[in-house]
Amino acid sequence: MTVMSFLGAIGAAQREAMDADERVIIFGEDVEANVYGTTGAGKTRSDKGDFLQMYGRNRIRNTPISEESMVGAAAGAAMTGLRPIVDLSYSSFLYMAMDQFVNQVAKNRYMFGGQASMPVVFRSAMFYGLNTGAHHSDRPYPMFMNVPGLKIIAPSSPTDAKGLLRSAIDSDDPVLTFEACLLWGTKEDVPEEEFWIPLGEARTAREGTDVTVVAISSSVPEAVAAAEALAASEGVSVEVIDPRTLVPLDRDAILRSVHKTGRLVVAEPAHRTCGAAAEISAHVVEEAFGVLKAPIVRVTAPDMQIPFSTALEKQMYPTRHTIEAAIRRVLDLPASSEASELAAASAQ
């Protein structure tokens, strides 16, 4: 084990993959200078230019600011024997290449009757919660969940980031990774040796019996914090499930947990309408309506653009407090611990 940051874990996975398979190449804007900190060799944000020195310009390539042709080139290269990793920096820039993602990357294998395989990874970071304003704060993974043919991961810990990225690079299908910048600095012990976390397997971030919280990306640590707070103040036992992979989604793990607890809260930083939380909620209603003891509650960003000012932005995404409030709702507990203390006092 060694302590790694989220960002360092991504860099480590990329380095291992580059070492293991010379078909793996990395291209993107400013990757040569390691501007975003994932094309260096360190355990945290590392020294400049490491990957360029280690692998050379044939395999580490700066691109012009041309997302559409970058994504298309990666698709064409993947169809003909390479395994590219494309660093698209901000998730908000994926829209520039929407045609390539939707019409080429996602469809080619199917449309050509299985002749194509598309082993390519598109990495992008979601810079929400960091005062970047409406053009850089997007969490667009649900839009891509609506496109059959893409696989999607959204890791919430350094270990998951490393293990899932290795599996993504080894996958013969296109994988989009959505990394929350809020998590970049998170550190934990990560196995030093190579390891792979299979796509499509959820992780139980915290075990519990009274209520299930399915949380995505940066909502995972918030959900765990809410669970700890409620355990302390109310003695409730909250289970937190992190799907980690959104496509394919580990629907069984979610259903198993809901069967155990009978209650569900879903928390994610994306918009409410047609979000991952909407899909998860609908699936649970269809498959486990009979075991639900209370209506499902979603905690999401509102269907609103993201404002710049901290005073305005901080209310937009799920926090431990909004998740706690949702858990209280499904458990029919008073809205806050002060309220429940008051209720307890008045009952005496």
Partner: peptide, 28 residues
């Protein structure tokens, strides 16, 4: 598309397959 003869696919979206050919050239 007939990959056996190097035909990597025709595109119904006008212009959309151009970067795919470039990617095949990158691969080569």
């Amino acid at each position: 598309a007939d990959f056996a003869v190097g035909s990597l696919g025709e595109s119904g979206i006008v212009g959309s397959s151009i970067p795919i050919a470039m990617g095949a050239a990158l691969s080569a």
